[in-house]
């Protein structure tokens, strides 16, 4: 399916590569986000890659929706250069989350097998969003998929490792969440005094290791 170009309010243009999350759609979004930054599109103030889309925040006094959409289509039709490899990160995790046993059980595994399967392969940083430094990592292979919890926890601290929908997420600030808490990490992906304020970028590779 060709990417969909839709307005998001009167200062946003969203380029959507799919309606549901897949590795291909996510890679397309990350790749286009990088190209849009490099291209320096007219009137664009901010390029924001999401799970399956890229948001361009633009100044309508400098460029209208139709002209910007035209520029985006040109960029989309240009041959894509091979994506540059992202940085590699190692994130040590204490797998002591309250939902670990339940998640493992749902997948028909014992907790140790779940952790081993979880840590087996490298994951990609799919996107940053929802809260400062909050990253979605994935996608886990097919069996490693559970739905979100029915109930939302009103607050989990920064450094909480979450699991749902074929993804592992890391919190950097306290947030409410409906995801399963599987562990905790001392790794903090948000420092307001640093530039950039986050270390993990969409397209980077993350490997999780068990901290005993």
């Amino acid at each position: 399916m060709p990417p969909l170009l839709v307005p998001l309010g009167d200062c946003g243009l969203l380029i959507r590569f799919a309606e549901s999350l897949s590795d291909a759609a996510n890679a397309a979004a990350i790749g286009f986000g990088r190209r849009a930054i490099a291209a320096g599109l007219p009137g664009v103030m901010e390029v924001v890659p999401n799970l399956v889309s890229v948001l361009l925040r633009y100044d309508p006094r400098q460029v209208g929706f139709d002209r910007l959409a035209g520029e985006v289509r040109l960029l989309l039709s240009a041959p894509a250069e091979p994506a540059a490899a992202g940085a590699n990160h190692l994130v040590p995790v204490r797998f002591d989350g309250d939902d670990l046993d339940e998640v493992a059980q749902q997948l028909g595994m014992d907790p140790a097998t779940f952790v081993a399967t979880h840590n087996a392969g490298p994951l990609r940083v799919l996107a940053t969003g929802f809260a400062p430094g909050f990253v979605y990592c994935g996608l886990h292979a097919d069996p490693m998929r559970v739905a979100r919890r029915a109930a939302v926890r009103p607050r989990v601290p920064g450094g909480t490792v979450l699991f749902a929908a074929g993804q592992t997420a890391i919190t950097s600030t306290p947030i409410p969440t409906g995801w399963h808490v599987i562990g905790h990490t001392a790794f903090c992906n948000f420092d307001a005094s640093a530039r950039p304020p986050t270390q993990l970028a969409a397209g980077d590779t993350v490997r999780f290791e068990t901290l005993e």
Binding site: L8, G9, G12, L51, V52, G129, Y136
Partner: peptide
Amino acid sequence: LVSDAIVPGD
């Protein structure tokens, strides 16, 4: 739905 960008006024 897959999580996507929000803008003020949504």
